[in-house]
Structure formats: structure tokens, C-alpha cells
Design a binder for these strands. Structure first.
Lengths: 116, 116
DNA sequence: GACCTACATTGATGGCTGTCAATATTGGCG
DNA sequence: CGCCAATATTGACAGCCATCAATGTAGGTC
């Protein structure tokens, strides 16, 4: 990734270190938080799970409303959030909208945790 | 919530698959969402980053307030959330409280994404 | 064209959350 | 014991968020 500012422990006393700049920049943190925000809802996790488990790899909204006990607009809203976070891919085919996992998106999120 | 009257769509046709039970259970999803909720804040990500980058592996609160531009109570609040999510470990030593990464916690969270 | 179906958008609302000021607690030190 | 320093807790408040009802849009069918 990028170079981290080395923390120089050199300070006065016992308690702690200086900690001038944090290891993770404010902007970068904000960006990464967006992905985890999208993952921070039980129903969205279940949506991802269902879509991932789907044999065809693509699922339409009518498949997703029933198992979640949510209204159709709510599911549509969650799907939008997941798409905007880059986790899902939407493909409109005729009247139906098919959703599939964005390739590598989950791995990418997992990598964020490893490279904090 | 309550039971929704099942609309009999009579459209048993071509759209999708049955989708009886979702792959991820409601309770399980709620539990996992708690971890991601803890990760879904930029300042908490930066806290984790600073603590992880700390040479000693343990950092006290006084090290964490300055680089984040947040008040001490707010930082304390964020740390509490991270501890309760199982991501951090708190060790009180005299007047100071030292925080360190909970071993394997980040890997565990990354695993959740892989095993959705 | 008229109508239906699948999905998206809007508006409203209750609940959650991040932040701060003020205060409480706890340990160390004289 | 009295005081200070480090941290935690409480209360209050603004902003965000998940949800639903109602409506809009667009594709398919007759």
C-alpha cells in the first residue's frame, strides 16, 4: 500500500508515545468505513449470503424479498447501498434486475482488515 | 414484526427460484453485523490502525485522543465499542488503560466475509 | 393503446449513533 | 487525608438510517 509514518517513541515519560499522524489517514479511513457501513446491517449480510449461494450467481429482487420478511422498497434500498459500496453488480434484463457479487469485492474488504 | 399476509401472486412462472430459507440465519446475521458495525466508523478504523502500528502493541488513551481530533470521552466511547465487539483488549495498569488488538479478531472478521 | 408486472424513488417517521460538556471514579503521591 | 491525573460514565442533542406506504417508471402482453 503506502508508507506509514514511523512512530518515534522518543518522548518525555512513561505513559505513551507522541503519535503525531495516525497510521491511517482521515480520508482513507472514511473511504474504508463506507464499505463496512454497507456490511453493518444484518439484512444486507443476508442479501449477500443469498446471492453468493445462488447457483446461477445472479438473483432477482423477487427472490430476495420473501426470505427477509422485508418490503420490496426496503430490499431495493439495501441493494442500492450494496451496489454503491461496490459489493454487488446490477444487471437489468427485461423487467427483472439481476444481482451478482462484484468479483473480488469481498476479498478486497477482507484485505482492508489485514492491512489496517 | 408480524406475519405478512402472503400474496398469492399466481405468477408461478419464469422469474426465479424458490428461495425458502436464506443461507445466513437472522440471528447469525445480527451477530456478524455487530462486528462490522464496530468497523463502520472512520475514527474507529483509525484507532485500530494506530494500536496495530504501535511498536509495543499496547497503547493508552492519551496516545489516541490527539491524532484523532476528538474529545477524550468520545475516544473512550469508541474504544468501548471496539472492546465489546471483541476487536480490542483492555488492560488497566495503574491510572492508565492500555489497549491492544484482540488476537485473531481481525482475521476472524475477514473470515466472515469469505464464508458468507 | 390498455393493462399488468417488476423494480425504483419519494416522503415521512421512529430509532439509533457520534459528539461534546459536565461529572463521577479510581489510582498515585505528597 | 487531600489533591491531581487518567479514564469512564451520564445527559443532551444533532444527524443519520432502516423501514414502510404511496407513487413513479419501464418492459412485456393482449
Amino acid at each position: 500500500m503506502n508508507l506509514l509514518p514511523i512512530l518515534e517513541p522518543a518522548t518525555d515519560e512513561a505513559c505513551c508515545a507522541p503519535a503525531g499522524t495516525p497510521a491511517l489517514g482521515a480520508e482513507e479511513a472514511k473511504q474504508k468505513a463506507l464499505v463496512f457501513k454497507a456490511l453493518a446491517d444484518p439484512n444486507r449480510l443476508r442479501l449477500l449470503s443469498i446471492i453468493k449461494a445462488s447457483s446461477s450467481g445472479a438473483t432477482c429482487v423477487c427472490d430476495l424479498t420473501d426470505p427477509l420478511d422485508l418490503g420490496q422498497p426496503t430490499v431495493s434500498h439495501h441493494l442500492k447501498i450494496l451496489v454503491e459500496a461496490g459489493l454487488l453488480h446490477r444487471e437489468k434484463r427485461g423487467t427483472w434486475a439481476y444481482f451478482s457479487l462484484a468479483p473480488g469485492a469481498l476479498d478486497n474488504a477482507a484485505g482492508m482488515l489485514a492491512n489496517l
